[in-house]
Design a protein around this nucleic acid. Structure first.
Lengths: 108, 108
DNA sequence: AACCTTTATCGTATTTTTACGATTAATAGA
DNA sequence: TCTATTAATCGTAAAAATACGATAAAGGTT
């Protein structure tokens, strides 16, 4: 079916999966790294940096925005995308908790 | 196209994305959590625990195995899946480095 | 107002993912 | 050997993800 049975899983499980999904494409990792490198608010230079069409990059930005990882601010005709440090620390703790939990496994 | 332009991105970017993709489904998070909870090597009880068909669970296990997160050991007619703590610590460091890198962003 | 720049959205094609039932393979036990 | 159990694989259908070009929207500039 290709349709994930979201309702059959816990809120936390879906949340972790959604965060992971946002990071599950090299282009989105590249976008985050590019934004991090810049010491200022950067905009559509992302498109030039990536080997993808403008509309495709826009889609990737939308996905990062949908999980709150980045914020877009309109600056004249352009849009400035920035990493949301609050969302980032939330992701960090969510993954951190998962890893600690999973690490409890003692078998093998 | 639905076909990720893997070759256009760095090895690290693809690696992070691949790891994230393995975690990008609630069923796979549930599997990892279930394996962690058990203090022993657990096998096909996973199927009973999850709201999915046996073949579907098998597919998810395959994906977790493909990134090395779990290992399968044959135990009689059954198979015992365990978390690979070495792979887990690698994932931890990969995500950790990404988060630290991204955290450098000072804009906004 | 007309125009240019920048970005989002729409429409579409292709690939991948998710999911299931059915079948196969492999092992244990009667 | 025959049978039951367990898990992987195959075939298939439906949905989501990826990608692009074209178009629209929104903001400056002349």
């Amino acid at each position: 079916m290709g349709l994930t049975k979201t309702k059959e899983f816990t809120k936390t499980q879906n949340e972790i999966a959604a965060m992971a999904k946002a990071l599950a494409h090299p282009a989105r990792i590249a976008i985050l790294q590019f934004l991090a490198k810049q010491k200022s608010c950067v905009c559509g230079d992302i498109v030039e940096e990536l080997p993808l069409a403008q509309s495709t990059v826009s889609q990737h930005l939308k996905e990062l925005k949908s999980v709150g990882l980045i914020k877009g601010e309109i600056e004249g005709p352009a849009v400035c995308y920035c990493i949301d440090l609050k969302a980032l620390s939330k992701i960090k703790s969510i993954f951190g908790e998962l890893f600690i939990e999973v690490e409890q496994n003692t078998c093998c």
